[in-house]
């Protein structure tokens, strides 16, 4: 008992020591990705030691090792839930929602009247607890993944719309005038100047909405789902006090969320390599 706590405190000290050393290194470029890893590992170690040392029951907080075991044990269930929620629900909804918002933004942009009216409304709606639409959409589209995708569409639409509309305004007057002197038409200006200029804003919207998409798909499952899916598994496992499975599901959700975000961020770097915020990263 005592041994675990001592080991935990020792690990804490060790991790802190390493990070302080890392922070003092002159060329901290190499240490950049290392410090957070050390921090994370230390945190997991402290968690493990204290849960074991203090004898916290597994129904309240399982140690990381138990979660890792459960994760390795039930890959079949976790994969099935992942496909149901993340791929069918979140990804479908994300693609449709962002696509629709993008096209709407391009259409709205042609009319200054619509733009002035829609932007405040969109900003307002983007701040609303849209997640509350979930029960209604589950009622409309049934229990399966279609309703989850619908929730995701509604959740990502307005943040994406607002960002894209703002992005389409990002090109400067001078640049647009230049396109005009080149005798470029509306579509040419859009393709060659305004869409590229809008890309940083578009990707900002795409990045914000990745998390929203996963949240929407998972929370929508609390209102009714078939007997698979991450939200379903979480809410039923909590009821059965199988907290190690819940945590395993959370690990999957976290990995999926981070990977999703990372993929969009990588795409952003490839598309907007010219933007000041991206320059100098490659070297």
């Amino acid at each position: 008992m005592m041994g675990w706590i001592v080991a935990g405190i020792a690990g804490w000290g060790l991790g802190m020591g390493i990070n302080m050393r890392l922070a003092r290194l002159p060329g901290s470029r190499a240490a950049g990705p290392l410090a957070p890893v050390v921090f994370g590992v230390t945190l997991l170690w402290i968690w493990e030691c204290f849960v074991r040392g203090l004898g916290v029951p597994g129904v309240i907080l399982p140690p990381p090792s138990a979660i890792a075991l459960r994760l390795a044990d039930s890959t079949a269930i976790l994969w099935q839930d992942f496909v149901q929620t993340a791929i069918r629900g979140a990804l479908t909804g994300y693609v449709f929602g962002c696509g629709a918002a993008f096209l709407t933004a391009v259409a709205v942009d042609r009319f200054a009247f619509l733009r002035r009216g829609l932007l405040p409304v969109g900003n307002f709606v983007a701040a609303l607890p849209i997640i509350g639409m979930a029960p209604i959409l589950v009622m409309w589209f049934g229990f399966d993944w279609q309703s989850k995708a619908a929730v995701v569409v509604v959740m990502v639409f307005f943040p994406m719309l607002v960002n894209t509309v703002e992005g389409l305004q990002a090109s400067e007057r001078m640049q647009r005038d230049l396109m005009h002197t080149y005798a470029a038409g509306y579509w040419q200006t859009l393709r060659r100047l305004r869409l590229p200029a809008a890309m940083p804003f578009v990707f900002n919207g795409l990045k914000i909405t990745t998390t929203l998409a996963l949240i929407g798909a998972i929370v929508a499952e609390f209102f009714g789902s078939p007997i698979k899916g991450m939200g379903f598994r979480i809410s039923t496992s909590v009821g059965q006090l199988a907290l190690d499975l819940v945590w395993a599901e959370i690990v999957v959700a976290a990995l999926a969320g981070s990977a999703f975000y990372g993929a969009v961020a990588a795409l952003e770097r490839a598309v907007t390599f010219w933007h000041p915020s991206q320059r100098g990263r490659a070297g």
């Binding site: 998972i218 939200g231 959700a253 981070s258």
Partner: peptide, 8 residues
């Protein structure tokens, strides 16, 4: 923030 915290 990339963890869908609402899920837990």
């Amino acid at each position: 923030q990339t963890i869908p915290i609402l899920a837990i």
